[in-house]
């Protein structure tokens, strides 16, 4: 049986992991689907370029997540006027009601319960948001989270504590906060 090529292996990787990478990116961007898609495309290209090296080192998925996270952090450091275009606004697309009453939008977009969480995430500073996502969604250890973010374990612990406390307050509050540039109630 012929050895699979880089293209074959990369295609399989994309099929197996693209959706989870997109979800990761959507959480990091607090629901900005366009920016999340950009992050995923950039990360996948870098994975492909580094493919021969990755098979011997940290692994393709870990590398993809790390480059995606780094690109996102870099993006958040750019001047605000360059980020105006990426404010998380849900597009005007057709909606449908799925079997669980979830309003699914075209292209697999999000339902109303998730909207509340996305708004809450948007209120967190980018790095704090990233810590919460790495620790509680990806279920990474404090040590691995610190390594991915390039910070100390103490920073991860304090950011995680502050982030979860803030999310708890927001998600149990009677109304959603107003986040500049973020449309709510759609």
């Amino acid at each position: 049986m012929p050895r699979p090529t880089r293209d074959d292996e990369f295609a399989t990787f994309v099929q197996n992991h693209r959706t989870s990478l997109l979800k990761f990116a959507c959480l990091l961007t607090a629901g900005d689907g366009h920016q999340a898609e950009d992050l995923v495309q950039t990360a996948l290209t870098k994975v492909y370029l580094a493919w021969p090296k990755l098979r011997r080192s940290e692994g393709e998925l870990a590398y993809a997540r790390r480059t995606l996270l780094n690109s996102h952090i870099d993006e958040t450091r750019r001047p605000r006027w360059r980020r105006e275009r990426s404010t998380p606004v849900l597009p005007e697309v057709a909606a449908y009601e799925g079997p669980d009453g979830i309003l699914g939008l075209e292209h697999g977009r999000f339902g109303p319960d998730g909207q509340r969480v996305r708004v809450a995430l948007a209120t967190l500073p980018a790095r704090m948001r990233a810590v919460v996502i790495l620790r509680y969604w990806l279920d990474l250890s404090v040590e691995d989270s610190a390594r991915m973010l390039g910070c100390t374990q103490g920073t991860v612990k304090s950011q995680a504590a502050k982030g979860t406390a803030k999310l708890r307050d927001l998600l149990t509050a009677p109304s959603l906060p107003t986040v500049p540039g973020y449309q709510t109630g759609r």
Binding site: A11, Y48, G108, D113, G114
Partner: peptide
Amino acid sequence: LKDILDSAVLMEDAPVDPSADLARARGHL
């Protein structure tokens, strides 16, 4: 919290077509 965060990115499970990502990456290479 994982379930809560999951709810923020609830998506349909749909087959992924890798061809666009592959073409883009090959172009860069």
